[in-house]
Design a protein around this nucleic acid. Structure first.
Lengths: 137, 137
DNA sequence: TTACATTCTACAGTAGCTGTAGAAGCAAGC
DNA sequence: GCTTGCTTCTACAGCTACTGTAGAATGTAA
């Protein structure tokens, strides 16, 4: 059985695909609790820390902001009947993502149109600059 | 006929939907040329400045970075036969946008799945936190 | 022991602005 | 002429979410 699998900060970094500096940064801003320290002052991490950091990284990967993650973890560690709020945070974020997607799709179309203005024609007929100057996106 | 329609910085700001500080920022970083000044030292802008700022704002709206805009204007004001390069900048940016869109669509799907884990079930069954912790996006 | 890797703190830099402080100018009303 | 209130000026701090660096200390392997 594996036990006492304490990791130094570099180990945690490798395990979670996070940079060492980022881990310290999360601790600084209170997103991660202060790490335990060895006698010489170095941070050590256990399984719980691995899980918590993995959660943070996944949430960031899903586009949650640091503040949203703060809310999520506060709710998750809180009284217990706040699941509706947790869902609300995620649902709100989903709406934001949908808005961004929509906006990006419109932008993409406009951009493609602009690039095509040049397609096939002689180089001297390029209207890309004018098209950007008149863009509506 | 309208002539001598010189604008103070606030007027240019309104005209182009840009904040005053942003205009000064663009001048600072050399994206806009140094503005002409009145006797008392205030910036004044003419039609050309309106056009150039409008171009910058549209390009930003299309997601071009400041550096890309720098390239575009340099090419546009340059020798003249660089249109292929202009198109290349825009096409490269389009590819970037496509990549981002793809990534966001995947993320959106994962997020929707997670939010749905809660749908209709009793509040105490919410698995959003666990789902985020195990997310693959 | 010597060398190299890792960690420590502390701080500067990234993009693209945005906001603020404090001083000066300007235009209108009385 | 004077006051009020808006705009502008410079200069700098702050925002998000990290990332990179310097310089010192500590750990590990040959």
């Amino acid at each position: 059985m594996e036990r006492d699998t304490r990791l130094p900060i570099g180990g945690l970094a490798k395990r979670t695909g996070t940079k060492v500096n980022t881990i310290r940064f999360y601790e600084d801003i209170g997103l991660l609790p202060c790490a335990a320290r060895t006698a010489s002052g170095r941070r050590t991490y256990g399984d719980e820390d691995v899980g918590r950091l993995a959660f943070i990284r996944n949430a960031r990967g899903l586009g949650f902001s640091i503040d949203e993650i703060r809310s999520l973890t506060a709710l998750a560690l809180g009284p217990g009947q706040d699941c509706a709020e947790i869902r609300a945070v995620a649902a709100r974020h989903l709406l934001d993502v949908d808005k961004k997607l929509e906006r990006m799709a419109r932008l993409r179309a406009e951009l493609a149109r602009i690039v095509q203005l040049c397609d096939g024609g002689p180089v001297s007929d390029c209207r890309v600059i004018e098209a950007i100057a008149a863009a509506t996106a």
